[in-house]
Every structure is written in structure tokens, then in C-alpha cells.
């Protein structure tokens, strides 16, 4: 297990270097003064310009610039945002909100998705299964911002069940609607995956053997079917996290949730590109870390992985 953890972390290093290099290359390999270019047709504050040029070591050769950048990323120094605020300060303020929202969405995803997926898988071909398939396909196909507007319009505006925008008070009750909206497409993915996984597990010989041992259905379903089905569902959580990050950006933007996503959203629509680059970098790092954690959970769930070597 220790070997597995070390190996998994070592594997993440080249990916970290690769991804940061890729982002840096995309932004700074442009001819001319990239910092100036980042501002496009906007006129930057000269002090900020100087600050950014210093941050990105523009007078050094490209590869040295990148190494400075990598050092900053690894040591958690993400520079300043467009408005001159330290990115770290902004993160300290916004991250807890986004973490709360994301956690709520993941909980909704797992509880609703796994429950519906399990029941659908056990009742394959029945009405419940077919309708859950249709609904999940629909949610899979509607873009997240459309779901946001539908939720905002019907649940918030027409029915008045929730506040249409969150504003400064990002308490859990206020975050329920954004969390539901954010979770919707993940729930759809989760239902399909759980259902498929349950059906496949049910076909395994060991399930029949479990029944033949005299175990009751009440024991076989959770212990031998659901437990095994959760393995692929958990691995998928890692890939889902990318969808969650993009979804959080859009959802927080539309519902005006004061989180990391909203900061990125505002930066994108205002064209504040240095901020965009910093926050995308932060999100990619987050994505890498979450995927490492999920791989470790995977190892806990599946002894075959844990005990390899």
C-alpha cells in the first residue's frame, strides 16, 4: 500500500510538470510582450503591468521563465490578480465557498445517482429503469448553463422555493439550488455508470455463489453487488471532477456564488486574462490532487490494486 501511494505520487510529478508547461507555453510562447498581449485591448494599470512582468520574469529566456513559474506554482504563489489583489488572498476567501458547494454536489451525486442507478440496475428493463435512463440521457445532453437558467427561472423565480442569486451569504441553505444544478449532469453520468456496473456485477459468478451459500437478498445486494459496483463509480469521480470544475465556474457565475468559480467566471467575461490563467492553473492543480486522492480511495476499495507488489 505504501509502495502504491508513493508510486502514484511519483507518477503525478511528470503530469504536473507537463500540464503547467502546457499552460505556460500556451500563454507565454506568443511573440511580443505576452503580458501586454494578455490585456488585449484593455489598458492595464502600469503598476500592475510592472508587477506582472516581474512575476513572470519576462527578461529571462523562456525556459527560465517557466522554471520560475513552476517554482511559484509548487510553492503556492499564484501572483496577483487583475485588480492587483494577491491570488492567494482571493483564494483564501473564495475556496471554502467552492469547496462547500462542490462537496454538496458530490454528496447529491453519490446519494441520488447511486440509489437510482442501483434500483434501475436491479430492475433492468422495467419502467423505473427505462424512465431513469431517459431522464439521465436528457440531463446528460442539456448544457449546464441551460440547467442553471431553468433552475433559476422555475425553482427560483416562478415557484420561489430558492433564492435566484446567492450573493455574499454562501450558507448551506442558500447553496442548495446551485448544488442541485451543479450535480444534475453528474447525477446523470452516475446513474448510467452505477446501473451498468450493477448489471455487470449481478452477472458475476460470485453473486450466484453468494446466494447458493444461503445468504439472503438483503445481504447479497449491499455486500456483494453494491460494494463491487462502487469501484468503477469511484474511479469515474476523478474524471467527473473536471466536469464539476467547469460546472462550478458556470453555476457560481450565474447564481453569483462568491467562490473560486465565480472569480474565474467574472475574469473570463471581463477579459481579465492574467486572472484567468492563474485560476485555471489553480483548478488544474486541484484536479490533479483530487485524482490522486481518488486513486487512493480506489486502492482502498479494491484489494487487487492495493496488494499488487
Amino acid at each position: 500500500m505504501v509502495f502504491y501511494v508513493i508510486r502514484r505520487i511519483l507518477q503525478a510529478i511528470p503530469v504536473l510538470i507537463g500540464t503547467t508547461f502546457l499552460i505556460y507555453f500556451l500563454v507565454f510562447a506568443m511573440p511580443g510582450n505576452p503580458v501586454q498581449a494578455l490585456f488585449g485591448d484593455k489598458t492595464p494599470n502600469p503598476a500592475l503591468l510592472a508587477e506582472l512582468e516581474k512575476q513572470y520574469h519576462l527578461n529571462e529566456p523562456f525556459i527560465v521563465q517557466y522554471l520560475y513559474y513552476l517554482r511559484d506554482v509548487v510553492t503556492g504563489n499564484f501572483g496577483v490578480s487583475f485588480s492587483g489583489q494577491s491570488v492567494n488572498d482571493v483564494l483564501a476567501r473564495t475556496f471554502p465557498v467552492t469547496a462547500r458547494l462542490a462537496l454538496m454536489a458530490v454528496v447529491i451525486e453519490m446519494v441520488v445517482g447511486v440509489t437510482i442507478g442501483l434500483v434501475a440496475g436491479l430492475r433492468k428493463g422495467k419502467l423505473f429503469d427505462l424512465s431513469s435512463l431517459v431522464i439521465s440521457l436528457l440531463f446528460l445532453s442539456v448544457p449546464i448553463f441551460v440547467i442553471c437558467f431553468i433552475g433559476q427561472f422555475f425553482l427560483g423565480f416562478k415557484l420561489g422555493w430558492f433564492r435566484t442569486t446567492v450573493g455574499a451569504d454562501a450558507s448551506i441553505p442558500n447553496l442548495i439550488l446551485p448544488a442541485i444544478v451543479l450535480a444534475s449532469s453528474l447525477v446523470a453520468i452516475n446513474i448510467r455508470l452505477t446501473r451498468g456496473s450493477v448489471i455487470e456485477t449481478l452477472n458475476n459468478d460470485f453473486v450466484r455463489t453468494a446466494y447458493s451459500k444461503g445468504l439472503s437478498r438483503r445481504r447479497v445486494i449491499p455486500v456483494h453487488v453494491l460494494r463491487n459496483s462502487l469501484i468503477p463509480v469511484t474511479t469515474q469521480l476523478g474524471a467527473d471532477f473536471g466536469i464539476l470544475l467547469v460546472g462550478a465556474t458556470v453555476t457560481e457565475g450565474i447564481f453569483n456564488v462568491p467562490g473560486v468559480g465565480n472569480t474565474l467566471y467574472q475574469a473570463i467575461i471581463r477579459g481579465e486574462r492574467p486572472t484567468v490563467v492563474s485560476f485555471v492553473t489553480v483548478m488544474v492543480l486541484l484536479y490533479l490532487v483530487v485524482n490522486i486522492i481518488i486513486d487512493l480511495i480506489y486502492a482502498v476499495l479494491d484489494p487487487r490494486i492495493r496488494y499488487v507488489k
Binding site: N204, F206, T209, Y211, H224, N228
Partner: peptide, 24 residues
């Protein structure tokens, strides 16, 4: 459920697939 196990025991064919891999 009462008969299976204590009335009739069952030994399946393929030892590789008949034990649940995630439980000891």
C-alpha cells in the same frame, strides 16, 4: 434461502470467478 447452504451446498465451476475479489 433456508435450504441453500444448510440443506444443499454448492461448489461452482470456476475458482477464479466464484469468490468476491473485494472481500477477504
Amino acid at each position: 434461502e433456508h435450504v441453500r447452504g444448510r440443506g444443499i451446498g454448492f461448489v461452482p465451476q470456476d475458482p477464479m470467478s466464484n469468490l468476491n475479489p473485494v472481500w477477504s
